[in-house]
């Protein structure tokens, strides 16, 4: 395609059929007896300046996917291209200079910030690792970053535990920004925060994106927050993506049964709204022994489940920029046939 080339230029991160399996060992000799298929064939891309929201319930593999993308984990299979370079199996040593360009912000700032380091040391550590500047330059950069994230400069001399949750998350963001990355993987960055503080941090992230042209992978389970922050949204269920579409479109016109259920399950903060709710029975199945066919069809005990076994349930484009898993259990008959 002609447009392919153009997209290629603007695409920062491209992932193809990524798999991240963890061995389950058992028996006397701890042989591998099974695998947790945390991420099981995910393809996605993130363009420059774009936010891709990734939603799903706990255990669906969204955090694992985030960690695999920045190579904190070594993928089992698949391919990750970052700015045109294949980083799937790159050694940590060769990866190190590239790490400047992608950084991660974690959910719980209390756990991800070293309590024995001063805030200044925490924020400058990535620069030390990347051998950026001398001591004085790094100190100046820390002050600049603290300004940037709305913290007083005096914070550099203090310890992270002296700050509240929202402030600690700002410190985590400042650390991630220290080396001028292009992409931030934000793993539930506001889930641990109270709503009023959450809004402050979300505003900060939006402002940083506008000013610095950052790309985000925004991982969260709060769909209201994800919609607010994202340009496109990917919905994950049991290690696989089931639907990817523009943020407005996916909320207005979800096609996959799981997306629909997820959207209707969110309580709406408006007491005048009366809604029809799709209640999904059961729980998310275990990724150790996932159903052979449609995972969500299995949960719903769908009549067409048998049909889905052995089918390729990969994403197909149902409308421009709107992809959905081709799954007989989870699509309307019309949608399913139109994709055949």
């Amino acid at each position: 395609m002609e447009t392919e080339e153009k997209n290629e230029e603007a695409t920062l991160l491209k992932v193809e059929d990524l798999k991240m399996h963890f061995p389950v060992r058992g028996g006397v000799f701890l042989k591998q007896v099974a695998a947790v298929k945390a991420v099981d064939g995910v393809s996605l891309s993130i363009k420059k300046g774009e936010t891709l929201g990734l939603v799903g319930e706990s255990g669906c593999g969204k955090s694992t996917l985030g960690k695999a993308l920045v190579r904190l984990l070594k993928p089992t299979a698949g391919r990750i291209d970052f700015m045109g370079q294949d980083i799937t199996t790159m050694s940590q040593r060769r990866l190190r200079p590239l790490r400047q360009d992608f950084q991660m912000v974690f959910q719980d700032p209390a756990e991800s910030l070293d309590s024995r380091m001063s805030v200044g040391e925490i924020i400058s550590e990535p620069m030390v690792i990347q051998k950026m500047g001398n001591r004085a330059q790094r100190r100046a950069r820390v002050a600049e970053l603290l300004d940037r994230v709305g913290m007083p400069r005096t914070a550099a001399e203090k310890f992270s535990f002296e700050f509240s949750g929202g402030q600690r998350q700002r410190i985590g963001i400042a650390r991630a920004l220290a080396v001028n990355p292009d992409l931030l993987i934000l793993d539930e960055p506001v889930s641990a925060l109270d709503v009023s503080v959450q809004a402050q941090v979300l505003n900060l992230l939006l402002e940083l994106q506008r000013d610095l042209g950052l790309s985000y992978l925004f991982i969260a389970h709060d769909l209201g927050v994800v919609k607010h922050m994202s340009d496109r949204v990917a919905v994950m269920y049991l290690g696989k993506l089931v639907e990817v579409a523009g943020a407005e479109e996916i909320y207005k016109d979800p096609r996959h049964a799981y997306t629909k259920a997820l959207l209707s399950a969110i309580p709406v903060p408006d007491p005048t709204v009366e809604r029809e709710r799709v209640i999904v029975e059961g729980d998310v199945p275990s990724p150790i022994d996932p159903p052979a066919g449609s995972a969500f069809g299995h949960r719903m005990s769908h009549a067409k489940y048998e049909e889905s076994v052995g089918m390729d349930l990969g994403l197909r484009e149902i409308a421009p920029g709107h992809e959905v898993a081709w799954d007989p259990c989870c699509l309307s008959e019309e949608d399913f046939e139109s994709l055949r």
Partner: peptide, 24 residues
């Protein structure tokens, strides 16, 4: 008011600035 204004709603404008409560 601050509490109600600071939650992103599904019908609010995307990427708009959220209302916040100053201070802590």
């Amino acid at each position: 008011k601050g509490l109600l204004g600071s939650i992103p709603r599904l019908d609010s404008e995307r990427k708009s600035e959220l209302q916040t409560i100053e201070g802590q």
